[in-house]
Amino acid sequence: MTDPLAPLRAKFIARCAEDLLVVQEGPAASELPRTIHRIAGVAGMFGYEALGALAGRIDERAHAGKGFVERELAELAAALAAVARS
């Protein structure tokens, strides 16, 4: 049986490599909030629930005005790297 989401999943995985660069740049990256929000919204759809949950926690903290925690960004970077290698 063919997975109808396979082409989109492949694009998501490729995008994770790009997103990793944004996350590694940290709070200085103007696209960081948008990137994290997008990851939080779509990662679970492609089977990466833990990645989506982590991005969701970071996104919620940022929207609450609490900024970004370096440790969490490092965890997110590691998770993105793992997905990009898959």
Rank of each mutant, 00 (worst) to 15 (best):
R85P: 03
A81Q: 15
E31I: 07
E70Y: 10
E18S: 13
L73M: 13
T35H: 02
P27T: 13
D19V: 05
R57F: 04
I39R: 04
R57A: 03
I13K: 07
H63D: 11
R34M: 14
F46V: 08
P7T: 14
A14T: 12
G65C: 07
V23P: 06
G52L: 02
G41A: 10
I58D: 03
T35P: 08
I13H: 04
F46C: 03
G65L: 09
L5C: 10
P27D: 12
G67V: 08
A29M: 04
G67W: 09
G41W: 03
A55G: 10
R38C: 02
A55D: 06
V83D: 01
A55Y: 02
E75M: 06
E70F: 02
T35F: 03
F68R: 02
H63N: 11
E70N: 06
E60M: 13
E75H: 07
A55H: 04
R15L: 09
G44H: 02
H37F: 04
L5G: 11
H63F: 10
F12W: 14
Y48T: 01
Y48I: 03
G26A: 01
R57Y: 02
H63R: 15
A40K: 01
E31G: 05
L73H: 07
L76K: 01
A43K: 00
T2W: 09
I58K: 00
E18W: 07
I36V: 15
G47R: 08
A6F: 13
E75P: 00
R15I: 01
G41N: 10
S86K: 13
L32P: 02
A62W: 12
A77S: 14
A77P: 03
V23D: 00
E70W: 06
H37T: 06
D3E: 03
G67E: 09
P7R: 12
L73I: 07
M1D: 07
A55I: 05
S30K: 13
R85L: 10
A74Q: 12
R61A: 13
A10V: 10
A81C: 09
D59F: 03
S30Q: 14
A17E: 12
R34W: 08
V23W: 03
R57S: 05
A40E: 03
Y48F: 15
A28K: 12
E31T: 15
R15G: 11
A6L: 12
A50S: 09
A29N: 05
E49R: 13
G56A: 04
I58C: 04
F68N: 01
K66G: 09
V23K: 00
A82H: 14
V69G: 07
A84M: 08
E70T: 12
A6R: 11
A10S: 12
A29F: 07
A10Q: 15
A43L: 10
A79K: 03
E72C: 11
F46R: 05
P33L: 01
A10N: 11
E31D: 12
E49I: 09
D3F: 05
G41I: 02
K66D: 14
A81H: 09
L20M: 06
E70D: 14
A81V: 07
A40D: 00
A62M: 09
P7E: 14
L76P: 00
R57E: 14
R9T: 07
A14M: 10
F68P: 02
V69Q: 13
A40N: 05
A77T: 08
A14V: 07
